[in-house]
Amino acid sequence: MRLDIVFRVAAKMFIPFILVFALYVQFHGDFGPGGGFQAGVMAGAMVIFYAIIFGLEAAQRIVPPRVVELMVPAGVAIYAGVGVASMLLGENFLNYSPFAHDPAHGQEYGILLVEAGVFVTVSGTMTVIFYTFVGRGR
């Protein structure tokens, strides 16, 4: 697989688009289908694709395992942190109304932040699971 030039060139062409599509799904999730879960899985799938074509070492040079392992708890921390922040601003836990001048805009920002937390956790978890499974095989 590593020597197959067709796969390598095709992968090089596809991977940027996969990443851009994942980010599109992430930030366009308010208006069309999509959101943190889907975008996270797509970003994880991009790393998996890269690792399958170019080998695990090449993938881990770009996305180091330490960073990925940090991403897993960081996403939950972002999510819960948004909740705590809304509590500090005088509202209920995970009520995003006080984040902006009027409640509806606050809700919009809150959804964006929470989805970012979901994205970080899901993409980190997918990548970390793949790394450990493949790392076990050698």
Partner: peptide, 18 residues
């Protein structure tokens, strides 16, 4: 009206059922 998000799935997921 509540969240300015037209995709109801997203607004229920992240806001109503956060």
């Amino acid at each position: 009206r509540d969240t300015l998000v037209p995709n109801v799935v997203t607004s229920v997921l992240a806001s109503y059922r956060g």
